[in-house]
């Protein structure tokens, strides 16, 4: 089966910045794939190359087998992109915007689907409102709707939940999950790691234009220390425990624990140093730990 997204040795430079430094990535059809990384890692740049918004300096990228440069019209038809920036055309209403977008994709009578998309994104009563009059979150929904007008088999969402309220976030994910179940491939970037953990089957982590981790979400979670413990102490942390520190705050710290047994050793060391424990909370490792470990280390 053709990969939904195939990236080979993608390079992109902006002046002295190597925004993408030889990225290899393959996303299978029907996957829910997460692309994570700190600010400036190159996530948007990679999406821009896939969408033809930027031209690669090297490498090949294709959508369902269509080269994004040589077969740009075919590849763009297969791709729906929700851009990261909140952009809109102030001249038009929501419905006009969606009709125009359909027309750009060569679809003449698309109102039934437009109505359905607006319904799922809770935009129906804003259909005839001018884009200028929408709140930020509503503009974001229209961006999502615009990306979906042509029912693209591959959907790319660049931080679609930035600045969006809880309710929409949930209804948006319900809708995207449904599209994914119906066979659409989804590629997602987000800074909300719980979101990625809950939704994505596989995840790639980018840092400074390179992929530093690429695996199933489960394997990534298994790869880090199993637990962590948050402590509030009466005194300073004994030196012997410093290597385990993940986070240090004024009044407490977060330690990595490979296993439950390790907790005994931590407590023993604290007792030995006569440091009293005010508060203790045990937590399961999550994607944030993976992220900090992988991105911090690499």
């Amino acid at each position: 089966m053709l990969p939904a997204v195939d990236v080979r040795q993608a390079h992109k430079r902006y002046g002295s910045v190597h925004a993408l430094d030889g990225v290899d990535l393959s996303v299978g059809q029907g996957e829910f794939f997460g692309l994570l990384g700190p600010n400036g890692a190159g996530k948007t740049t990679l999406i821009n190359l896939l969408a033809g918004l930027a031209i690669p300096d090297g490498g090949q990228l294709s959508i369902l087998g269509c080269d994004v440069v040589k077969q740009y019209r075919a590849s763009r038809r297969l791709l729906g992109v929700v851009p990261q920036e909140l952009v809109f055309d102030p001249f038009f209403s929501v419905r006009e915007t969606l009709r125009l977008q359909s027309g750009y994709f060569g679809l003449r009578r698309n109102d039934a689907w437009i109505d359905e998309v607006m319904h799922h994104l809770d935009l129906t009563d804003k259909a005839d409102t001018n884009m200028r009059r929408l709140s930020g979150g509503m503009k974001r929904r229209v961006l999502v709707a615009q990306a979906l007008v042509h029912k693209p088999p591959v959907i790319v969402l660049d931080e679609p939940t930035a600045g969006v309220d809880v309710e929409l976030r949930q209804s948006l994910w319900r809708f995207i999950r449904q599209l994914n179940r119906d066979g659409h491939t989804v590629l997602l970037t987000t800074h909300y790691l719980e979101e990625a953990e809950a939704l994505c089957g596989r995840i790639a982590m980018l840092k400074q234009g390179r992929i530093v981790a690429l695996d199933s979400t489960q394997n990534l979670l298994n790869s880090v220390a199993g637990f962590r413990v948050r402590l509030k102490l009466a005194g300073g942390l004994p030196a012997a425990l410093l290597p385990q520190v993940i986070e240090q705050e004024d009044d407490g710290c977060l330690l990595a624990l490979p296993s439950y047994q390790a907790l005994e050793q931590v407590l023993a060391q604290l007792r030995e140093a006569s440091v009293a424990v005010h508060e203790m909370a045990l937590q399961q490792a999550d994607l944030e730990d993976v992220f900090l470990q992988v991105v911090g280390r690499a």
Binding site: A51, R73, R76, P83, E85, V87, D89, Y104, G106
Partner: peptide, 15 residues
């Protein structure tokens, strides 16, 4: 369109 960024809608389309 360039300054407001909405040129992206045209650039994303198979035009």
């Amino acid at each position: 369109s360039k300054i407001t960024g909405n040129i992206v809608f045209v650039l994303l389309a198979p035009i």
